[in-house]
Design a protein around this nucleic acid. Structure first.
Lengths: 257, 257
DNA sequence: GATCACATAATATGATCACACTCACCGGCG
DNA sequence: CGCCGGTGAGTGTGATCATATTATGTGATC
């Protein structure tokens, strides 16, 4: 699927501009690059500490350097990517201390979002969440790592979107992206005791319209997985062996080298 | 080293590049533009709802459109500026509901930062905070609006920086920038009952090494000013009359038109 | 054989250009 | 008089070019 457009860009004159694939909508490329980067971070295509080159990435993505620049700028401003003093960007290394802070902030923010969502909760929302949670449990039983990640994310964010807050959601999303790579690498460990019981508590709180309980359940969910990750070996080993475990072929993200 | 100086000037009009003001450090212009925009937002040079044009701003700032683009992109990614569906950016309008959410989030995050800072607090920190607070009180007595804003910001951020968190600070800063314009316009009201008593409680908690009390004090400080602002007339009137009250000449920010 | 200087390659940054789209103003037609 | 279509300026986006800076590799020197 990765279109190899290197041939076409050779001598496309300078008058062309961007008519390569027909007319574009405004900001399409930039948003597409951001989406690909986000997905790549969530899915473990990037290794913590890895530096990201503008031109190389642009070449892999088949675009000019311009959209990549703006996408990387956005992610850097959101603290998803880090800018070294050399002005080169890299995906941040996660230390235990930082991860613990991240979890505490997530508990506060996502707990607040859960509380607000519970107040606005509709039966349809509960039904959707039950469906997603069932899929999550199925993915856990099937040992489907990516399915777990995707369903878990879907569960949390459909809940948070129900809070309908223009302040909270934009704050929560980057936090997930910061934790994304670590989450992926952690799930590789064969004895991942994913604990989805907190999700059940969330659903119960929503049905009872008990906002405080919803907050506590979300906080417990975050705290559980965080404490497991801190006890696991994710932070002990260097990122070396983890690289080998990437399954690039599953997603068209071999490009991020 | 002196390789191809033979074809130095291709066409006199595009060879200039950026040598206008002599050599620059890397990323200097971009950071400078970001700093100017931040300061402008804090200081009331922008009116909520005002749209921002890339080329105009670049022209006023004396630079190319490039650094302005990246600066605006950063601020947009941090939710400090808003991007309309037309892909034009504007400084967000603040509604009471949004401001209330903002204050609740600020209470949670800044309370957490105060708690962490209290645990790491040193006598030097307390001393510096006392000095800043004294200056703040002086500015209040002198009815120095900008002095109040600057000192208050300095008080809070020297405290939060003491928390030494790479997670919290980047989250807190944009929240202040979001509230920045409203804060400025609110202080214009002649009967601003600025309540710095919470700052005293913060200092006392720091001296007592009582982290929980520090958190409560900061939360109270935010809650107080928020409830006052919500009761004031800032949100009632349209932004029309507020524009006239800008004192552009005080800062070299008449450029932001 | 190790270290340092220098040349080469690669990088991010800034400037400029070309294009598609948006919006406001205006003249015509209903 | 009111709606409608054109037309122009203005906008953000993407591509390309130029430049300074940084990283890297290779050579000579000690």
């Amino acid at each position: 699927m990765a279109a190899n457009t290197t041939e076409m860009t050779r001598k496309a004159k300078k008058t062309n501009g961007g008519a390569r694939g027909g007319p574009r909508r405004r900001g399409e490329l930039q948003d597409r690059v951001v989406a690909q980067l986000r997905r790549g971070l969530m899915v473990g295509a990037f290794v913590p500490g890895q530096t990201i080159s503008l031109r190389k990435l642009a070449g892999h993505l088949g675009t000019s350097a311009m959209p990549v620049r703006e996408a990387i700028n956005q992610l850097t401003a959101a603290n998803v990517l880090e800018m070294l003093p050399n002005r080169t960007v890299c995906v941040p290394r996660m230390t235990p201390a930082r991860f613990e802070e991240l979890s505490k902030v997530r508990q506060a923010l996502e707990g607040m979002a859960a509380e607000m969502a519970c107040r606005r909760a509709s039966p349809q929302l509960v039904k959707r969440l039950e469906k997603v949670n069932a899929e999550l449990l199925h993915a856990i039983r099937a040992r489907d790592i990516l399915g777990c990640l995707a369903r878990n994310q879907e569960f949390h964010f459909t809940l948070y979107e129900a809070a309908d807050s223009e302040v909270l959601l934009p704050l929560i999303e980057p936090l997930w992206l910061q934790a994304g790579p670590i989450m992926y690498f952690s799930l590789i460990s064969p004895d991942m005791p994913w604990d989805a019981s907190a999700h059940g508590d969330v659903l119960k709180a929503l049905r009872d319209h008990d906002a405080a309980a919803a907050r506590r359940a979300i906080e417990r969910d975050i705290r559980n997985t965080a404490s497991y990750l801190l006890k696991s070996s994710v932070f002990r080993g260097a990122s070396g062996p983890l690289v080998a475990l990437r399954r690039e072929s599953d997603f068209d993200f071999g490009m991020f080298g």
